[in-house]
Design a protein around this nucleic acid. Structure first.
Lengths: 222, 222
DNA sequence: AAAATATTTTAGTCGTACCTAAATTAATTA
DNA sequence: TAATTAATTTAGGTACGACTAAAATATTTT
């Protein structure tokens, strides 16, 4: 039951369902899939039936969908491809950090195990992609490092930037200006109650960042 | 009229029509497309209508199809992508010579100009792919070096292997055994009338190769 | 708890890209 | 040149993956 071939659409649905499911634990609603894929709910229902029949998800009418063991396995392989291609685009082809996602969305559907294994080797078996997201290995094993938002730190605590969530260019420019990248050390100076913005110390100076920005920069404590 | 987006199928048809047309000069029959793509003639007729409507080919009922200026332009871009990916797979990912075609067939349909331009740069603007086929540049310009078959040489004449046509593993193994690759010098010793096989001198020894093999090894005269 | 609202599913369509069977046109052979 | 054969097109059908409109179910509000 592992070697079934999925269409590009099926792969995209499965990936989205996995991403919405909190590593496979949560029920996923039809509406949430509809929103993330920009496809009408009625169409989502159709695909849910298809994926159910293939035992990639379990579906209870009007309740929601849960991704199966095998579904997770396949989703992780798609995510692995996506993130390896992102590393390739970023490191070898000099794509900007905010340009890689879109192209990787296409490359991830090219189906060749040899291709992805050789690419992995060529890139020296990277553990994270340029956003800081972990790359599953060939067996689907993945490092779940628990990452917290900057605002979860206590005042005075330090952390290392380990994941940057947002993908648009504006955000990318802001990070560039602040010289924030994966690996940058951050110290929380103060939380401003008024608008939930926070003051942090990076690169030898203190700056204030908004709540939204803070939420999109994940860190690991040191 | 240049920036229309084509489906994977449309791209495959267009590429096949170009390849069958002798660089755009010859009329291409519905049957020949059917054979090369392994698609029934009736289906080919459907697609011919579609491509005609988009002015990528000209079609005369019951006569044949001719690829248009714009069709050639697009076909050459697809071929460019295919060959650049072949270079990448061969040189960077250590694919074998006979393994690259299939994967490149998929990669060629990934649509991103930035991707292909940066790949080109990364590969140092290669002029030929691992089979010896010329790679069109960004503008669609391509080196048409006239290549002849070994059997077109006169006895005693020398040539350099410049293109290897066949793609299967058996043929690859044979070439490996004979140590024939792109760049190898070949001298024609004799033509054997009986079965049209030919005797050649390579790597300091003489060998006899069959008509079929000879036809699949193209050379340039020295 | 009934009514109103939101979510999900069903039913019926549509374009794409393929198919088979039959009709039409072109090419070849007798 | 007439008959046969081959190539091509037309007509009608199918699976996929999307859609809209309407029905069914769940949730929230009054």
């Amino acid at each position: 039951m592992t070697n079934l071939i999925l269409s590009k659409s099926e792969e995209n649905y499965l990936k989205s369902i996995y991403n919405l499911s909190d590593s496979g634990s949560k029920l996923v609603t039809t509406n949430s899939i509809s929103k993330i894929l920009n496809i009408e709910p009625a169409s989502v229902t159709d695909m849910i039936k298809k994926l159910s029949k293939k035992n990639l998800i379990y579906h209870q009418k009007y309740k929601g969908s849960k991704i199966s063991k095998n579904g997770i396995k396949i989703a992780l392989q798609i995510i692995r491809k996506h993130r390896l291609w992102e590393v390739f685009l970023y490191e070898k082809l000099n794509f900007k950090w905010d340009e890689i996602h879109e192209v990787a969305e296409e490359l991830e559907h090219v189906s060749s195990d040899q291709l992805i294994d050789n690419l992995d080797k060529y890139l020296k078996y990277p553990k994270i992609d340029p956003h800081g997201d972990p790359i599953p290995n060939k067996l689907g094993e993945i490092d779940f490092v628990d990452k917290i938002s900057i605002s979860d730190l206590n005042i005075g605590q330090k952390g290392i930037v380990s994941r940057i969530i947002n993908e648009d260019e504006e955000f990318f420019n802001l990070l560039n200006k602040l010289k924030i990248e994966i690996g940058t050390e951050i110290k929380l100076i103060d939380k401003i109650e008024y608008d939930s913005s926070i003051e942090i110390f990076i690169n030898n100076r203190s700056v204030i960042i908004s709540k939204v920005v803070a939420e999109n920069i994940k860190i690991t404590k040191v």
